[in-house]
Design a protein around this nucleic acid. Sequence first.
DNA 1: CTGAAAGCGCTAACAA
DNA 2: TTGTTAGCGCTTTCAG
Lengths: 335, 335
Amino acid sequence: MTDKKVSIEDVAKRANVSITTVSRVINNVSTVSNKNRAKVEEAIAFLKFKPNISAQRLARGTNNSIGLVMPGYPGIFHSFYAIELIRGVGHACESLRLDMLFHITNGYNPINTNNVGGVLFADIIENRKQVEAAIANGTPCMIINNKVTDLKTNYIAVDNTAGGQIAADYLSSFGHKNIAVITGNLNTQSGLERFEGFKDFLKTKNIEIPKDYIFQGDYSRRSARVAMEKFLELKPLPTAIFAASDDMALETIAVILEKGMRVPEDISVIGFDDNPACLFGPVALTTIRQPLFEMADEGVKSLNSIIQGKTKSLVKTLLKPELVIRESCTTPKGQ
Amino acid sequence: MTDKKVSIEDVAKRANVSITTVSRVINNVSTVSNKNRAKVEEAIAFLKFKPNISAQRLARGTNNSIGLVMPGYPGIFHSFYAIELIRGVGHACESLRLDMLFHITNGYNPINTNNVGGVLFADIIENRKQVEAAIANGTPCMIINNKVTDLKTNYIAVDNTAGGQIAADYLSSFGHKNIAVITGNLNTQSGLERFEGFKDFLKTKNIEIPKDYIFQGDYSRRSARVAMEKFLELKPLPTAIFAASDDMALETIAVILEKGMRVPEDISVIGFDDNPACLFGPVALTTIRQPLFEMADEGVKSLNSIIQGKTKSLVKTLLKPELVIRESCTTPKGQ
DNA sequence: CTGAAAGCGCTAACAA
DNA sequence: TTGTTAGCGCTTTCAG
């Protein structure tokens, strides 16, 4: 691309060997005499030779790269989520020596699956068509964080329903009855499942959440603030809040403290994510940990195994979230 | 990769034309009869033919992809920063039809520059070696958010010094004298420059910042909390705070409110970034906007131009930050 | 408007 | 241990 390209042939000439020998040293094949190896290495260094990867791939008949498709609207999911996924994918690609083609999508443009061995979809949000297209043309796919039951494809997700249940179980075990919830984006599978897992579990304990104790948030701090300000006008006041993300939980706590109330003495708050930020707020946040990094990492590994034909059947993995107890929940006042 | 690959030749056979004609329809060359075009398209659809991009690239002699190298330690910069960069780069790549190879680095492993036309470094943090290596082997590089003066390479950055000055100017214009600052990570060029720009400007107004009014933060909310709690023990209390990121500013405000004081009536706070989150806190944050998305977008475009040989000279771009006035700053009490 | 043929730069038998 | 040679799948002159 830059300057005139130097090819394996130039190297061969300068080192006075065949191109095969050059190829051998490039690929670290052991059957090369030290003398020749040295000559070739000198030539490579001198000429600043860089093998043309397209030619390598063509000749080898392989394409060791995968795509990561991520919705691109402002405020991608919540940032912590996105960053953890990216980190996990990046980590796995590094160790598997896979190229990672990162693709931010608006959901409409068809994504190009020709140049990758397979593609990872970070959730499906308004881009179902892309997933279907990829599946249709035979590209191995792995959906992250969305249990797609109606598509013949692979997924790895967190059991958000279980997460909601765990939160409900923990809160109700303190004896809380007036429990409010700030949901995540309910257009999102995770948001919906967390909410329903939570609500349904409480029902088994004979606790109903009244309508005005439910606020439909969108994972943003802003929505949590609006929610909490509304809750604070209600009576009776809720004694516990389940926020479907740590960011929202943190903002919830901020609002409570601003009003001169205390957490958890006056109101208990539980979050979801286990974002490191929860450790360092005014009160350490009790939360439901979801293994984001691991999900991404494992997703890449499974996908790779599928691409290489080692895994034949569909893989559907469900990861368990877990309760992380810190300081933001306790018994309701007066009990 | 999957199944037996169908090649352009298979398509040609089925459509009863030459591979040249198939190539023409793939590349949308107009000189193909409608009849042939239809036949080829049918064959492509029927065979689910996907052109091999490596072969295309090899034949065309181009490699339209760029690398994005980003430090991978936990808490990559502050998330908003990273996300905006990624969005900007993704956006530019999409419109330039460039593949984006995303590489998260620990700073040590050499990065593979063979398969990309050029590489974008998201700042330089503990990975200077990689940059030097890339430059040495002739790979076009673009450094984002770091003015590298001692390396013969390109950069696009925000004028953080100016940003610091703007903040200082604004605060001092209200008549504040007791101004404290929570710096960003001072190992970072941006952190250092914001601080020095701020401090130096105040000096021109004959305002010195005492030692204990300076807290060395790291862009995290946590560090801001620690800082603000310290400041609150000081006397006289500062009447204004400059936090080197919005995240820190937001946490600063939270701490102030928790203590029952008001923003901006008791203490003014100014941030840096213009993270959308600043709009929705308890008080809308006045801040210094830095054009992250644009920086990334523009960075890719410049890099591409360099790769294509359209730009010959080194490009060194400095973007101007600007003041965004909202509600978190005012005149000090009693003035 | 179409096709034959010469590569693009590299890998991988196969011989030597 | 080394070199020869035949592709990998596609693009691109150049004739027709």
